[in-house]
Design a binder for these strands. Structure first.
Lengths: 238, 238
DNA sequence: TCTAGTTACGAACGCTGTTCGTGTCAAGTA
DNA sequence: TACTTGACACGAACAGCGTTCGTAACTAGA
């Protein structure tokens, strides 16, 4: 866990500095919360349960976090810290960006449905900032115009988070592996195939195709679509 | 209405007030729920409040909806029904798709943060199906390969929903118009500009650029990126 | 008129995030 | 050493949630 103390964003009012007694600390709370999410999922994470796991009461957590949202936000940033940073000196920048997208996805997927707390916000946690910095270095180094680079990072985060979200949703419903999900997709395809063919000719015709492609293939499609687009912008600016 | 609905004499008042009990129905529940979301936002939508608005108790709603999730799902499909369907006979399919993306976004934005219930799921509501059918017709008509068309619709929905989500988040925090949001963005930019320049050279240098571009411009960027990508796939298949 | 069956819904259950006021204890002062 | 001070700890309570249960109220058929 890199813990460089960056200045706190000034618009977020901090109540108390987290001066701690022995057993409790923001760190301990975060570790415990993450363990709970990994074990039981995000819905099972309540202030009471975290406190209970720490052998205390829910009220004690509010000394370190203004509210549950703040706890979740820091939890997410902590996990983002596990994503390897992309290297600006990679020989093929497109491959590097693609690879990093896959790594990001893998990190999110390894924490159940924690990704659900990723709101469509400008992320300001220290690890998010480090990540953004590294990705900016890669894109600018590749000749992507500044403005496009900024938007590109937005778009990539969005796609990665959305994909992880979808996977988390499947897991939530017991469809963990691709094999588990197959019967479900089969059902969907069947349903589409039996729609009224005069009103839904395309859906009926494409019923088998609609569920084609694993999660990985779809993710690859989305990522390639974007990275190729960025590359075209880089060439246009050259 | 007959003129007989005077208040009952208290000495023979019954337990039940004469409250003009209109026949409860799924339709009535959905309309009321949508009105509440539009007025007070999604977080203010509870089963109790919907029931109260209908002059009944929360338990009554469970005769028409298995649970709150089902109610929300149908609510979303209802709103999706307000999106104009894309036309397969449009002269320029790319323009048609782009236009439809904007219209979709507008519909979501006109219902506060209702878009938050759009989960990364295969949507099976009747209106969602009609929409998917129409979009498939456009893409296939344009020569986009079947498999790509299926994935394309996924991607577009994803981007539209994510964009509407971000806008809804701003609204939630009181930043309704672009002018309202300007001070917030200014703060973010300032914060970035004052990060340690040796650790964050790119973020510091790009502090003004990071917040550049209105929501509309960013949305246009994302949509164009995708549609152009689809077009390349169509050409490759020709 | 009586009965059977459906719908309506108040009350209650167990949960949630958060706040208040008191309890507890370490450090500072006399 | 004894006393005071002040910050952290946290049980209890509050207001709200989604959902269920048992019964009350009404409708339709006999």
């Amino acid at each position: 866990m890199p813990s460089t103390d960056l200045p706190a964003p000034p618009w977020r009012a901090r109540k108390k500095p987290p001066a701690a007694r022995q057993p409790l600390s923001a760190e301990a709370v975060l570790s415990t919360a993450l363990r709970l999410v990994d074990r039981d999922g995000l819905d099972a994470l309540s202030m009471r349960r975290v406190a209970q796991e720490l052998g205390t009461g829910a009220a004690s957590l509010y000394a370190y976090f203004a509210n549950k949202d703040e706890l979740l936000e820091q939890l997410l940033d902590r996990v983002i810290g596990d994503i390897p940073l992309p290297r600006a000196d990679a020989p093929d920048w497109r491959a590097e960006v693609r690879k990093n997208c896959w790594e990001s996805r893998a990190v999110f997927l390894s924490h159940r449905d924690l990704v659900r707390v990723a709101r469509a916000n400008i992320p300001v946690g220290p690890n998010s900032l480090r990540y953004t910095e590294a990705m900016l270095a890669v894109l600018r180094g590749a000749g992507v115009p500044d403005r496009i680079a900024a938007w590109a990072i937005d778009q990539m985060s969005l796609v990665i988070v959305a994909d992880a979200l979808e996977a988390a949703l499947h897991v939530e419903q017991g469809r963990v592996t691709e094999a588990d999900a197959a019967p479900y997709f089969e059902q969907v395809s069947d349903y589409l195939a039996h729609l009224p063919p005069d009103e839904f000719p395309n859906l009926v015709a494409m019923a088998p195709v609609m569920i084609e492609g694993s999660g990985d293939e779809r993710f690859a499609f989305a990522i390639d679509l974007m990275v190729d687009g960025f590359a075209r912008h880089a060439e246009a600016a050259r």
